[in-house]
Design a protein around this nucleic acid. Sequence first.
DNA 1: CGGTCGATTCTTGCGAAACT
DNA 2: AGTTTCGCAAGAATCGACCG
Length: 283
Amino acid sequence: MSETLTLHVAIERILADAGRSLTTREIADAVNAHGLYARADGQPVPTSQVSARLRKYPALFNKVGNQMSLVVNAGLRPATSPRTQQPPQTRRPNNGTIPDPVSGNMSIDSAALLNDLNYRLAGDVVNLVPEQPGVYAIRVVDVAVLPEPFRVHAERRNDRLIYIGEAKISLRKRLGQELWATGHGTFFRSIGAVIGHRPMRGSLAGMANKHNYTFAPAVEVAIIRWINLNLEVSWLAFDREVHETEVRLIHEFGPLLNLSGNPRKLPELSVVREELPTISCSG
DNA sequence: CGGTCGATTCTTGCGAAACT
DNA sequence: AGTTTCGCAAGAATCGACCG
């Protein structure tokens, strides 16, 4: 093993491989021995850093005495996740909430967001998306349309879901940015890069924000056409705890192209995303 | 009204003090 | 001595105000 990961992902992998609980000393030694994580200064990972990271991710790690273990069902999940085996569900109205069976309070119906029956082809929803806050999910019609190495990852996961996002003000405006390039949607830049397009050379020269690169107009049209034909969208409109819900869903389902907060984020996507500003800043 | 771009928020990494 | 916790810095991700 010689790949480098973020520290908590490296810890997760060590615990998964061990198949038992370990002390912070054992974890630190294993991470250093396998070269799973490289500090900026080249020094080995101290136990203090392992401890700090374990504490920061209570959803991923259990601590009993000085023994650390993985939370069951957290982090990396097998290719055949339970949700791919769920029986078909009936379409529900996308109002985003259902009564909690225990408390009786209204909670977010995340199952409806990922229900097959609520996905629609991107090219068909332009006038259907509501002007309300909420969360949205994007998936591919067929994983075969994804280039390598993303297709292999999607097939291995047996999952077509590629992105979950939030709209604090308006799903229509946000999805406009993400799918039809009416703004600097993060997803639009990611999918453009994933399917092989590159930004205009020098498009960010002299600008303060080096992440908001743009594609050439003709490339933008090609990306939008690809999106309309190959992606499906589902959304839930609600106005309470939108961000908390998005964070929870990303963590739970690990979409292929989400980076932030995604325990299953792809290193390949980070590499692609990092390359683009470099290109667009050069003159 | 659409698109640009900067403000804000979040994540990651680390050092050091406090604690066991 | 080893471990835990706190707090800060830097960079990345995201959203929406505002300008043309």
